[in-house]
Nucleic acid binder design. Structure first.
Lengths: 221, 221
DNA sequence: CTTTTCTTTACGGGAAACCGTAAGACGAAT
DNA sequence: ATTCGTCTTACGGTTTCCCGTAAAGAAAAG
C-alpha cells in the first residue's frame, strides 16, 4: 500500500471525492494541491526527506486564474515530475478521453494508470489504485471507444501549423512568407494548396471553413 | 432545511462530493441519478407522494453513452422540471461559465442558484445551499469575470445559421439557395456577404476561417 | 398618395482561392 | 555520372470570394 499520496486537482469537489476514495482504501492522509507548480515543488521537497511521495494522482487540465503558474497543465507536470523522481507512480484522472492525448503519456512518459472522469469513475479509481499497488498498470479498454470515435487520419506538425495559421486569420497567399520566416518547408503556395487539398479530400471536406470547424471540434488545434 | 434532495450528475466523483457536502449540512440521504431522463421521472413520481423533492442539484452537460436519453442536457431537464413542478428549488452545479448560457437560466427558467465547478466549489456549494434554505438566491459575482472575458457582440440566430452552414462545408455561393429553401431572409448573396463582413469587422477578423475558429472556441456554434 | 429611410438585391471589377499541368530539385539506387 | 522516383515549385486558367456602388423594394413618416 502507499504511504504518501499527492492529489493534483483544481476542482475541490473532485479532489474531495478522490480523498474519500483513498481513505476507503486505507490511505491515511492524502495530500492535495490545486496548482501544478505547487505539486512539483512539494514533490521536490519530499524527495530529499525520508518519506518521498510514492503515488501521484493528477488531472490534465487546470483552469487559469489570478495565480500565475509556470506549469499550466498535467502533461507538463508529469514531464517535470519524471525528471526529478522517475520511479514515482502516476495515476492520471481526467475528463480527457482522446487517445492521441493519452497514448503518449503511456508510451513516452510511462504513466501507470489512466482513469477517465465518467459515470463510474470512483470505482475505476479504486481499481486503478489496487492495480498500481500490486505492481501492475491500469489502462481500461474503454479507450478503445475513443479509438473508433477517433480519426484514422494523422495530422502532421506541418498540417497543424498551416491550419493554425488559417485559424488565426492568415490569408492563404500570405502563409508561404510565414513558413519561410520560420524555416518550415515546403513553403510554396502550391505545396500549401496541395496539402490542404489532400487533407480536405481525406475527410471529403469542401471548404477550409469546414476543416477549421473539424479541427476545433476534435481539438486538433 | 431540505427534506428531499435530488442530485443529477454523471460523474460519480463529483456526485460523491456533493452528497458528502449535503451530509455535512444535515441532509440525510440525498438521492442521485446520472441521467436526465431518470431525474425527470423520479421528480414526476415524487410529486404525487406526500414527500416531493424540494431541491434539485443538477449539472448542465452530460456525456452520451449507450443509454439513449430523451433529455440530453441540464437546460432541457430544467425546462421540463419547471413544467411539472414550478416551485422546486434548483441549484445548477456545472463547469459551464459562460454568461450567455447561465443568464437565461436565471432569467427565463428561474433557477435559484448557480455554482461553478472550480477551485473552491464545495464551499460555494454549501453557501448556495444555505442561501436557498433561507429563501434567497445565490448567483456569485464571479460571473462578472465571465462578463469581461465575454464579448459585447451578440450573434443573431441568422448569424449563427450562416456561420453554421459555412462550418458544415457549404460554399458561400450556395448558401443563398439553402436560405431560400428554409425560408430565411435575407437570402441574397449580397446580404450574406454584407453580414459576414459586418461580423468580421466587429472582431477585426480577416478570414472566414478565423471566424469559424472563434465561434468554435466560444461554442457559438 | 408622396417622401423619406432602411433593407434587400443586383451587378461588376479586382483579388484570392482552386485545380490541373509541367518544370525543377533532390536523394537513392544502379 | 545517369536514371528513376519523389518532393517541391512555378505557372495559367477558371471559379469563387471580396467589396463598392447602385437600383429595387418595403416600411414608416409626412
Amino acid at each position: 500500500m502507499f504511504e504518501r499520496v499527492l492529489i493534483v486537482e483544481d476542482h475541490e469537489s473532485v479532489s474531495n471525492s478522490v480523498k474519500q476514495a483513498l481513505n476507503d482504501l486505507g490511505v491515511d492522509n492524502p495530500e492535495h494541491v490545486s496548482y501544478c507548480d505547487y505539486a512539483l515543488s512539494w514533490i521536490k521537497k519530499a524527495i530529499v526527506t525520508p518519506q518521498p511521495y510514492d503515488l501521484l494522482i493528477t488531472d490534465l487540465s487546470f483552469e487559469e486564474d489570478q495565480t500565475v503558474q509556470q506549469i499550466t497543465d498535467g502533461v507538463a507536470l508529469i514531464r517535470a515530475v519524471r525528471e526529478v523522481q522517475p520511479d514515482l507512480k502516476i495515476l492520471v484522472f481526467t475528463a480527457e478521453g482522446r487517445l492521441e492525448v493519452i497514448r503518449p503519456l503511456i508510451e513516452k512518459l510511462g504513466i501507470n494508470a489512466y482513469v477517465r472522469k465518467a459515470r463510474r469513475d470512483t470505482q475505476e479509481l479504486k481499481a486503478a489504485f489496487e492495480a498500481i499497488a500490486n505492481g501492475r498498470n491500469y489502462f481500461p479498454l474503454q479507450m478503445k471507444r475513443s479509438e473508433r470515435n477517433g480519426h484514422s487520419f494523422n495530422f502532421s506538425t506541418y498540417d497543424i501549423t498551416i491550419i493554425r495559421l488559417l485559424a488565426e486569420g492568415k490569408k492563404q497567399k500570405d502563409i508561404p512568407q510565414c513558413l519561410q520566416d520560420n524555416k518550415i518547408t515546403p513553403s510554396s503556395l502550391s505545396s500549401l494548396e496541395k496539402r490542404l487539398n489532400q487533407i480536405k479530400d481525406e475527410f471529403s471536406f469542401t471548404t477550409n471553413e469546414q476543416l477549421i470547424a473539424y479541427c476545433k471540434d476534435f481539438k486538433i488545434i
